[in-house]
Design a protein around this nucleic acid. Structure first.
Length: 866
RNA sequence: GCGGGCGUGGCGGAAUUGGUAGACGCAAGGGACUUAAAAUCCCUCGAUCUUUGAUCGUACGGGUUCGAUUCCCGUCGCCCGCACCA
């Protein structure tokens, strides 16, 4: 009997329609079963999906389908991170409306994604640019403001001269804008901030509760928050301008307080600014500092520069001890107090500075085994190292730096010279953007009343539709009428805030909105958002490592802020489990005229030598490195092409095979072929034996080998999926199919299938279902299934099949494997030992010696030492 | 510079966390079926040697252990994050 090849183009749409018609993936908030919220990071609607999306959503979909089959009420929603600069760039370059451009992209991408068979609840879909979404975001902003979590203040901000907007510190990479790559300038502007620093410690402490987050991400966040413990004290000032009596300083090395030889302030320090008013030399020096770039290379090569102010500072422990005060280029204004205590012997920067300006160097402590003084390399041992303190308010003392710091802190606190202080690297989150395509900041500026919140009943403050992009700057500001309005307080003419929010705000709470996107009056519905009847935290969040800091930290802040403002009940952390998947990478190809796409070439492989040539004219192509898919390198494959050629299931299967999901996966044509071959193989084996399988009993022990293989595969595949170890689950499925291939062939020939075989095929289809859902439905229907496999429960394995009556133990002699011993599982230690020693290869390996010792690890191994 | 991670066949990767190294897949080679091809099926596939077997082998060098890819110390190489953070 000839069986037709499986045709995904026919089968896949058929099953998707069936799922839709049955509303299988629509989630009911009131369903009493245990809840499981699986979420993939929502995408920016850039125009078309790429293979990275396919991988991300496949991982999430396998989990969602699996969890659904194991009895959970699964929430698996989808939406769009739809505000952002590309829409404005498209508007400017192609003369389209950003809104239309965005929604049209969404339509296109939605169409593409639908063909992949992801089990999303589309009824909950929204885009962050929907007024029905950002209305609530504006409400959150106002509530945060009311609760002291928002602040408007003048600040030195990062200005991107190309994108014509300010950037958050996190969006400045090596001194350049993260999108434009333009050199960022410093400007003084009045801007809106979320006071994320008010939660530094909570955000740090919360990391310890995130057991299912990668350590790497937690570490990155911890470093980013950057807590340091130290001493806060004040220098007295001698000869400083009026109003500057004291100079507050922070140091993490309280133990070096007896070794400073200078003090320094930042060029941006208020005292420096004050001095500049009277002294043109100071002005010149500060200007020189500002001219120095902030790029990586520039910082590394930057000379230490100082300007001696002539002012003296007095040491807190001894007012007669004075030090010179410098303005120094390496002191940052936005960390600590913008002033430092310079202890050259134990800080390389201070030492470089001291050597340049001929300042004294005082050794505070020395190594135990040397009396040498510091030369050009500062002595900075680990804090746990024991050293000899020679410059130490008293007798020389041998102790660790840690101990010395503790003693010093205690001394300074007791004497009233300073206090312990905790300092964080984290800065407040600047959210104002001078852009059009973002959520408007719902504030009205009135000359009489100041910044006034837009009343709740006037939300949303909607973006105007009629905007132009023919000149640089903010279209909202240019708009002829939009910003003019009445002050809600006094009714006089006032102006709307023309800034929009950083788009990271949009993605900081969308996961909460998905729990009830229909609530028109409130951002969240408290009965379903979290707590015993609600969804949050997200049980498994899946996305790229590139969001390790920004998006995830902001979301963690938002959850805390939403709880404070009554928009959440109990939840502390948004994402209970986090999984960061790797990229999809591909070989690159370089032809005579530059990079060429994989579709344009042909690869031949003879005896392991791979060569490539252009399809068009056969000219040779150089096979380059494996890199992240990018348009510039042309090493992209289009998901549409893959689906057209192989179908969605093959693409999904490939994404799960071979590479562990947290690592990069290399997309290859051969791999895609192999995935497709396996899909066809399953179909052929099942379809050819379908008649036999249909008439077989559903459960049975009539073929031990098959039953064992099936139950074992079922157990390990379930466990692997729970661990998101999809590559291992895939390997187990290959193994199972290898076992079933021959019996299925026989069944097809004889028309008879054992009950065990039928059960094994049931298991196989159930296990394949989360990964290749369309194929699973087709197979299930072929062997007589009536309800859809997507609606059926995950089968139960029988533990009885997991144990063998006999075990085969590897036998080692002196640590080297010499053979195997098959023995009853219940055999006790002495029986195993006796049987081992009786083996001829053991005797031979012992060469007549008496065994000194026999180590029997039950069910594992035997090692004879002789 | 600081912090973190990784290193296993030609390739992607397994190895029950101290117990048979190389599962599974790819690539390659050989064979069967076929007029032929495709598809499918079967076999081989870490290295070396004196090849019914043995020795070596998880970046390199040591160590702990009956036993180490796994733990410890050192070296080399690669990757990631942060970076004048006091």
């Amino acid at each position: 009997m000839a069986i037709e090849r499986y045709n995904p183009r026919v089968a896949e749409p058929k099953w998707r329609d069936a799922w839709d018609a049955a509303k299988l993936f629509q989630t009911d908030n009131s369903d009493p079963r245990p809840k499981y919220y699986v979420l993939e990071m929502f995408p920016y609607p850039s125009g078309r999906i790429h293979m990275g999306h396919v991988r991300n959503y496949t991982l999430g979909d396998v989990l969602a389908r699996y969890k659904r089959s194991t009895g959970f009420n699964v929430l698996h929603p989808f939406g769009w991170d739809a505000f952002g600069l590309p829409a404005e760039n498209a508007a400017r370059d192609k003369n389209v409306n950003p809104r239309e451009w965005t929604y049209s992209n969404i339509e296109t991408m939605k169409g593409q994604l639908k063909t992949l068979g992801f089990s999303w609840d589309w009824t909950r879909e929204f885009a962050s640019c929907d007024p029905s979404y950002y209305k609530h975001q504006q409400k959150l902003f106002l509530d945060f403001w009311q609760h002291g979590l928002v602040e408007r203040r003048a600040a030195k901000v990062n200005w991107d001269p190309v994108d014509m907007t300010v950037l958050a510190n996190e969006q400045v990479i090596d001194g350049k804008g993260w999108r434009s790559g333009a050199l960022v300038e410093q400007r003084d502007l009045t801007q809106w901030f979320f006071k994320i620093t008010s939660m530094s410690q909570e955000l740090l402490d919360g990391l310890d509760t995130l057991e299912r987050w990668p350590d790497k991400v937690k570490l990155m966040q911890s470093n980013w928050i950057g807590r340091s413990d130290g001493l806060a004290f004040e220098f007295g000032l001698v000869g400083a301008p009026a109003g500057f009596e004291k100079l507050p300083v922070f140091t993490t090395r309280a133990d070096t307080m007896y070794g400073p030889t200078f003090a320094a302030i930042s060029p941006d320090h208020p005292l420096a600014t004050e001095l500049a008013k009277k002294n043109p030399e100071v002005v010149a020096f500060i200007e020189k500092c500002h001219q120095l770039g902030t790029s990586l290379a520039e910082i590394e090569t930057a000379e230490k520069m100082g300007f001696d102010t002539g002012i003296k500072v007095t040491h807190p422990a001894d007012p007669t001890w004075t030090l010179p005060l410098f303005i120094a280029n390496f002191v940052l204004m936005d960390y600590g107090t913008g002033a430092i205590i310079g202890c050259p012997a134990h800080d390389q920067r201070d030492l470089d500075f001291a050597r340049k300006y001929d300042l004294p160097v005082i050794d505070v402590f020395k190594p135990l085994d040397s009396d040498a003084s510091v030369g050009d390399v500062a002595f900075v041992p680990p804090k746990t190292e024991t050293v000899r303190y020679v410059q130490w308010g008293g007798e020389p003392t041998v102790q660790t730096c840690q101990e010395a710091m503790e003693r010093s802190l205690a001394l300074f606190e007791e004497a009233g010279w300073g206090q312990r202080k905790v300092q964080y690297r984290l800065r407040d989150w600047l959210i104002s953007r001078q852009r059009y395509w973002g959520c408007p900041i719902p504030v009205i500026h009135c000359d009489a009343c100041g910044a006034v919140p837009v009343p709740a009943d006037q939300l949303p403050v909607e973006l105007p539709a009629d905007v132009t992009f023919d000149r640089p700057g903010n279209p909202l500001d240019h708009h002829p009428t939009w910003k003019h309005t009445a002050c809600p307080k006094c009714g006089r003419q006032a102006r709307r805030d023309t800034d929009t929010m950083d788009t990271f705000v949009d993605s900081s709470w969308y996961f909460a909105r998905f729990t009830d996107p229909w609530n028109a009056s409130e951002p969240t519905t408290l009965s379903v958002v979290d707590g015993s009847t609600g969804w949050l935290p997200v049980a498994q969040y899946i996305g790229g490592i590139e969001h390790a800091i920004l998006h995830l930290l902001y979301s963690r802040f938002f959850v805390r802020a939403m709880k404070k403002t009554g928009h959440l009940n109990v939840v502390e952390e948004p994402f209970e489990g986090l999984f960061t998947q790797g990229m999809v990478v591909h070989e690159t190809y370089k032809g005579p005229d530059g990079w060429v796409t994989p579709a344009e070439i042909k690869i031949s492989d003879a005896d392991g030598k791979r060569t490539a040539s252009l399809l068009a004219d056969g000219s040779p192509v150089e096979i380059g490195g494996i890199e992240k898919m990018s348009k510039s390198k042309k090493n992209v494959v289009d998901p549409d092409d893959i689906i057209e050629t192989y179908g969605a299931d093959t693409a999904r299967w490939f994404m799960l095979s071979d590479s562990p999901p947290e690592r990069d996966v290399i997309w290859t044509e051969a791999g895609a072929d192999a995935a497709h071959r396996f899909l066809q193989r399953i179909w052929r084996l099942v379809a050819e034996a379908a008649d036999a399988l249909r008439s077989a009993e559903g459960k049975g022990a009539d073929d031990e080998a098959i039953a064992k293989a099936a139950h074992r595969a079922l157990k390990s595949v379930g466990e692997d999926i729970e661990k998101l170890a999809f590559n291992k689950a895939v390997a187990r499925l290959y193994e199972l199919v290898n076992v079933l291939a021959a019996p299925l062939g026989t069944a097809a020939e004889t028309g008879k299938a054992s009950a065990a075989l039928r059960e094994a095929v049931d298991f196989l289809i159930a296990m394949v279902a989360p990964m290749m859902p369309h194929l699973a439905e087709e197979c299930w229907a072929a062997i007589g299934g009536t309800e859809m496999i997507a609606a059926r429960p995950w089968p139960q394995y029988d533990p009885a099949w997991l144990v063998d009556n006999d075990v085969t133990l590897p036998i080692q002699v002196n640590g080297k494997k010499r053979g195997d011993l098959t023995i009853s599982r219940d055999a006790d230690q002495s029986a195993v030992e006796a049987a081992t020693l009786a083996l001829d290869f053991v005797q031979k390996a012992l060469e007549g010696r008496q065994p000194k010792k026999v180590i029997v690890v039950p069910q594992r191994i035997v090692n004879v030492v002789g």
